[in-house]
């Protein structure tokens, strides 16, 4: 088929999309909703991933001290920890400071009052390892200290986070497949209407000797346009939602790593537009297949 022939093809596409306007609208809305949910999921997954990666790089270990530990043991403990191979620095964080830190991260200034005046936190040593390779061995050593109750460090959380990402990925994949299916069905329905409305024209084209490509292109374009419109709307919605979510997270849960809009928009745009166009292509494929078997 000649490139120039697209000037005969474009008008066909737009005429038929306008002709069954409400179906076009329904198809675009379905694609918008499904791609919107998919895009939000995508944003969620890349952010959880970013958090996991950030934690993986984290070289800090928190060692919580048992309630009944005598004051004089604190100094000895400090030096014992400092003596562990790979420890770079040890910082003491009292339970009061710990609570203040947490309050700061969540943007809540009066956490103590909110918890009924009881501070549930123990005292803690915050240990910085020389590198992340040392974190696991340091944690292991710390476990043998009788004064230490509990140890928290990145890798543990990382494992849990990665498990979460996996769940999210699988759940997201299923959700995306269902959404994609709905979108393809709606696009197919919309294009099937066009095919029905233009049955006579398709027949005339066939008899006059139009190539299959020439006959197919208006429908492929219709699918692509439906997909594209849905994708653009979904993207707009998703990015606006993301923008507001960022503001909210920055204010209330500042310890979470959240990727700024500037870091995610390129991949998100690619993802949404790619998905939209792909769904559009798929949707236009089925309704036409049986008409073209010449």
């Amino acid at each position: 088929m000649k490139m120039k022939s697209f000037r005969y093809i474009f008008p066909q596409t737009f005429k038929s999309m306008l002709a069954n306007g409400w179906m076009t609208f329904a198809a675009v809305m379905t694609i918008t909703i499904s791609l919107f949910l998919c895009t939000l999921f995508w944003l969620l997954v890349i952010n959880v991933d970013a958090n996991a990666t950030a934690l993986e790089e984290d070289v800090r270990i928190s060692a919580y001290i048992k309630e009944d530990t005598q004051d004089y043991s604190y100094d000895r403990l400090y030096y014992d920890i400092l003596a562990i191979e790979g420890v770079e620095a040890v910082e003491y964080i009292s339970r009061e400071d710990g609570l203040k830190n947490i309050a700061g991260r969540f943007g809540n200034t009066d956490l103590l009052a909110a918890m009924g005046g009881v501070n549930p936190l123990p005292d803690c040593y915050s240990i910085t390892a020389e590198s992340k390779d040392h974190v696991a061995s340091i944690a292991k050593k710390l476990e043998s200290f009788t004064e230490i109750d509990d140890i928290r460090y990145g890798e543990e959380t990382v494992d849990r986070l990665f498990a979460l990402t996996d769940t999210l990925r699988i759940g997201g994949l299923i959700l995306m497949l269902l959404m994609a299916l709905a979108a393809v069905v709606l696009i197919s329905m919309s294009i099937r209407l066009t095919v029905m409305a233009r049955k006579k024209e398709i027949m005339v084209m066939k008899w006059t000797g139009a190539t299959n490509a020439f006959i197919r292109w208006p429908f492929i374009l219709e699918g692509l346009f439906l997909g594209l419109m849905g994708a653009v709307l979904a993207l707009g919605l998703a990015l606006v939602c993301y923008h507001y979510a960022l503001g909210y997270i920055a204010q209330y849960v500042s310890f979470l790593v959240v990727l700024p809009l500037s870091a995610v928009w390129q991949t998100t745009v690619l993802f949404a537009l790619g998905a939209g166009l792909l769904l559009g292509m798929l949707g236009s494929f089925f309704p036409l297949a049986r008409f073209l078997d010449v």
Partner: peptide, 28 residues
Amino acid sequence: TGVVFQDFRLMENSNVFDNVAFALKAVE
């Protein structure tokens, strides 16, 4: 080959020119 039918099979919403031009557009 050209084909003509009893029921004409024209595009109802178009004018004479577009109906005839359609065959030339179809073969690009």
